[in-house]
């Protein structure tokens, strides 16, 4: 019996340990987890089978948002998916009896942007029902997220094109001999049947600098432009430069973003005597990734003798340089949709 008593005591002790370990039950302030949903009951229908978007044609997202009209026979979880032919998409889902809360501002989920002239297919479906309704929209001007520097597409509404155009730095990636497997410095157009091209986040074109650091000085080549950026704030903590950069998996890939400021107000940006800001980054990922840098995080190029004040309103020159880290390697800088945004970085989906 002594052994039995001993075991009973041990048992109670063990149970006490068990409950003390798990006594801190996690409490939910709400009484459910996950998004609340409601499936369609039998006999569910959309009133008059009507599903429309307004506006639906030649939508200018710099001036308007799109609303959707549809009323349901009950409160239900709906899925409204908008999809372009080029892969851009956005989905709205909620539990409601109509679509009055849905306002599409031209934004997207995922990587790909809705672009000018896109035909957009809208599909409305419901949880627990096979009811499906469709509509088609067309985009005239895509959403503006800020000061788009360049999207490398043909001139389209809402896309800024710098009149001076781009120039290359004329170094190791800008060889005269045409050999796209070794050197490249310019715009590339995506073609589905060309595996050497990549579908960019916006449109079908992107910029590519590729070359070998033949003189082993870390710097390979680059491209840029001289043109007033007309940024509208002097607050360097509230302005961000963003662009999508494609990582190839090559360990030596490195890029550098440069911004020149017209310190003396004479127009243009003079080399060495006016401020140049730079931001270097290793491209240590594969696929497209958004790079966002606060203006105040750019560093001053030591050799330049400007006023050493970060002045976004004076920004008038940009450069996108390809580096090699370590030196002497073949590297590439592939980027698209360089844009300045105010207050926050470009939204990341």
């Amino acid at each position: 019996m002594n052994r039995f008593r001993k075991n009973v005591l041990l048992g109670f002790s063990a149970i006490a340990v068990i409950f003390s370990v798990s006594c801190k039950r996690d409490k939910h302030p709400e009484n459910l987890i996950g998004p609340e949903y409601k499936n369609a009951d039998p006999g569910f229908y959309v009133v008059n089978n009507s599903f429309t978007a307004a506006p639906s044609d030649l939508i200018d997202f710099t001036k308007t948002q799109v609303g959707f009209n549809a009323q349901f026979s009950q409160e239900v979880t709906y899925f409204l998916t908008l999809r372009s032919e080029k892969g851009a998409s956005v989905t709205f889902t909620d539990k409601a009896a109509d679509l009055s809360k849905v306002k599409w501002d031209g934004g997207h989920n995922g990587l790909y942007f809705f672009n000018a002239n896109d035909k957009v297919f809208a599909e409305l479906s419901f949880l627990g029902s096979n009811v499906k309704l469709q509509d088609t929209l067309t985009v005239k001007t895509p959403k503006s997220y800020g000061r788009l520097v360049e999207d490398f597409e043909a001139a389209t509404p809402g896309h800024l094109k710098f009149p001076a155009g781009w120039y290359t730095f004329g170094k190791e990636a800008s060889a005269k001999a045409v050999d796209e497997d070794k050197y490249y410095n310019g715009v590339v157009a995506f073609a589905a049947n060309n595996p050497k091209t990549i579908q960019p986040p916006s449109g079908i074109k992107y910029f590519k600098v590729m070359g070998t650091d033949a003189n082993v000085d870390f710097f390979i080549d680059g491209a840029g432009f001289i043109s007033r950026l007309n940024l509208v704030t002097a607050n360097t903590d509230s302005i961000y430069f963003n662009m999508f950069v494609y990582g190839t998996g090559n360990v030596s890939d490195k890029g550098s973003i440069k911004i020149g400021e017209d310190d003396n107000g004479k127009g243009g940006v003079q080399d060495l005597v006016e401020d140049e800001l730079f931001y270097d980054f290793k491209i240590n990922w594969t696929g497209w990734k958004l790079v966002s840098v606060k203006y105040s995080d750019f560093s001053f190029t030591a050799a330049n003798t400007g006023n050493r004040i970060r002045e976004p309103k004076k920004a008038g020159k940009m450069g996108f340089a390809l580096l090699s880290d370590p030196s002497g390697a073949k590297t590439s800088l592939i980027f698209d949709y360089p844009i300045f945004t105010y207050g926050k970085p470009l939204p990341q989906n």
Partner: peptide
Amino acid sequence: NTLVTPVQAYSDVDQ
């Protein structure tokens, strides 16, 4: 690991 979107995993409805 957060629950986000409901889907009909098994149904007698054609979806």
